[in-house]
Structure formats: structure tokens, C-alpha cells
């Protein structure tokens, strides 16, 4: 008996902080204790806008993954998807809070009561045209293969961006990126393991994985062209120009699909940015309706 207690105590001890074990579930203000001074020479409006881009990507993808909870192919996969969604939600909270702290709140404050924290004002009280996520994360899940192909693509892009962002002149972004890199590595690897198994599994899973790839690849057109905001910030050593990671992403995805015996779909030409500028399809409006409905029904409530 004593022996088992030792190992459980040790496990407990290893993550005894209030965050329990999942990033983002803590009770503290997400940015408590972090120096949030805007670095010199940086337009706070630009910085906040950039945080929204990265934060909205994480929030919307977390919401998509959460749609799998109680519906996943196995119980072990419920736990894995839950972990990934929690990581992304944690990143979203930090980034939205950062946007709020530099005063970028869009029209959300016209609707959200003062008692609502910035991260929630931004998540719950902006309309779709104020969201800055790309088409890659907002598209619907499709089947499990489609979901894993999208996760593979989205995590590969985000990992490449965050890896570079660790060098950002903005200490907050650099800190968020440093934490995020470990998480994203795990997300990408999880998705890659599934893509291998589905691509090289049965005839049916191969067909579904191929269809997932065909559906996801065109969405990459919205990912690599920088907005003027990103260009300005990248020039100032704050942000990453997404065009810079295109080659790396292409190489990773091509390798995984090849090993999965899948045909790599044609790489889409970069299109002018849409999602980053607030142009979205009806799927995002639907997703936000569900995410925001309750909070908007009770704008004066505290939760």
C-alpha cells in the first residue's frame, strides 16, 4: 500500500500547482505578474492586432476540437483531444488578455459590461468581422481523418511561427511562444501519428485521409500572406512574417503525407489575406453563435 502511495504522491507533487495539470485552468488572471510594457517603437494597436490573430486562431481551433468531446473514436483519444484543446484555450486566453492590456478591444467594449475581463470581452463580444483567425482553423471538422489532417496543418504552421516568436522583442509574446512551442510540438506529433495510421491503415481510412488532405490544403492559401500589420511588426522584431515559415511547413507536411502513403495535394498559391482582415465564411458565424450565445444573453452577469 505504502508503495502505491509513493508513486501517486510523486505524481501529485509533480503538478501540485493550482493549475492542476492542464494549462489554462488556473484561477489566476492569465497575465498576472508579467511585465506588459509595450516595447519601445511599437504601435500598441499593431501589437494588439497581432495578438488577436494568434489568439483567435487558438480559440477557434480549440472550439473545433472541443466538438469532439464525448464523440471521439476511443476514450484515450477523448483525453488526448481534451489536452490539446486545453492548451490552445490557454494560449488564446493569454493572447487575448495581452491584446486587451494594450487597449485593442475593437467594438467589444460597447457591449460587454466593465466587470467582464478583457479576454472574455474579446472572445464573446466581437462580431465575426472582428475576428482575425484564418480559414484553416475555422473550417468545420469533417470526419476524424479530416480533423487530424487539419490539426496537422494548423499545428505545423503555428509551431513554426511560435518557434521564431520566442525571439520576439516583446517579452510577453516571447514567453507565450516559449510555452506554446512544447505544446504545439505535442499537437503536431499527435496529429502526425494519426495521419500515418489513417493514411496507411485500411482502404477506407486511406480514402478518408486523402479526402481530408484535399479539403484542408486549399485553406493554406489564407495562411502565408502577411497583412501590413504583420509586416510592420516583423520588421520591428516583434512578429513573424508568415511567408517565412512557408517552406518549413511545406517540407513537414510533404514528409508526413508521403510516409502516410497519401498523395500530397497541389500547394495553393498564396491569396491576399482574408481571415486576418476579418473576412470569414458562414462557418465562423455559426461557431461564434454557439460560443457567444449564453454570454451575450446575460451581458451584466458574472461567471
Amino acid at each position: 500500500m505504502a508503495h502505491e502511495e509513493t508513486v501517486y504522491e510523486a505524481l501529485d507533487h509533480a503538478h501540485s500547482d493550482e493549475g492542476h495539470w492542464a494549462f489554462g485552468t488556473g484561477f489566476d488572471e492569465p497575465l498576472a505578474g508579467v511585465d506588459t510594457t509595450v516595447p519601445e517603437g511599437v504601435d500598441p494597436a499593431d501589437l494588439g492586432e497581432y495578438c488577436l490573430m494568434l489568439g483567435d486562431d487558438a480559440l477557434v481551433l480549440a472550439q473545433r476540437l472541443t466538438q469532439w468531446i464525448t464523440n471521439a473514436p476511443e476514450l484515450e483519444e477523448e483525453v488526448a483531444i481534451g489536452n490539446i484543446a486545453l492548451d490552445l484555450l490557454g494560449q488564446a486566453r493569454l493572447l487575448l488578455a495581452r491584446a486587451g492590456s494594450v487597449g485593442v478591444l475593437g467594438r467589444s467594449r460597447e457591449r460587454a459590461t466593465e466587470s467582464i475581463p478583457d479576454e472574455d470581452a474579446l472572445a464573446y463580444f466581437r462580431d465575426p468581422d472582428e475576428f482575425r483567425c484564418t480559414a484553416l482553423v475555422e473550417a468545420e471538422n469533417g470526419d476524424f481523418a479530416h480533423t487530424m489532417l487539419r490539426l496537422l496543418a494548423a499545428a505545423t504552421v503555428r509551431l513554426a511561427v511560435l518557434a521564431r516568436l520566442r525571439e520576439s522583442r516583446d517579452p510577453v509574446l516571447a514567453a507565450i511562444a516559449a510555452k506554446g512551442v512544447n505544446e504545439l510540438t505535442y499537437h503536431r506529433d499527435h496529429a502526425a501519428r494519426w495521419v500515418l495510421r489513417l493514411g496507411d491503415g485500411t482502404e477506407e481510412s486511406h480514402r478518408r485521409a486523402q479526402a481530408g488532405a484535399e479539403a484542408v490544403w486549399p485553406l493554406l492559401a489564407d495562411v502565408f500572406s502577411a497583412t501590413p500589420t504583420e509586416q510592420r511588426l516583423a520588421a520591428g522584431g516583434i512578429a513573424v512574417d508568415p511567408a517565412e515559415v512557408r517552406g518549413e511547413v511545406h517540407a513537414v507536411l510533404t514528409e508526413v503525407l508521403g510516409r502516410a502513403t497519401l498523395t500530397v495535394p497541389g500547394w495553393p498559391a498564396d491569396a491576399p489575406p482574408r481571415g486576418r482582415l476579418g473576412e470569414h465564411g458562414p462557418e465562423l458565424a455559426e461557431l461564434l453563435d454557439e460560443l457567444q450565445g449564453l454570454a451575450r444573453e446575460h451581458p451584466a452577469a458574472t461567471w
Binding site: 480559440l59 467582464i116 479576454e119 472574455d120 472572445a123 464573446y124 450565445g293
Partner: peptide, 8 residues
């Protein structure tokens, strides 16, 4: 889960 009224 999808409609929880705050991110926390």
C-alpha cells in the same frame, strides 16, 4: 462546453 460563458 461549447457555450461556457467565460474562457476560464
Amino acid at each position: 462546453l461549447l457555450a461556457a460563458p467565460s474562457l476560464r
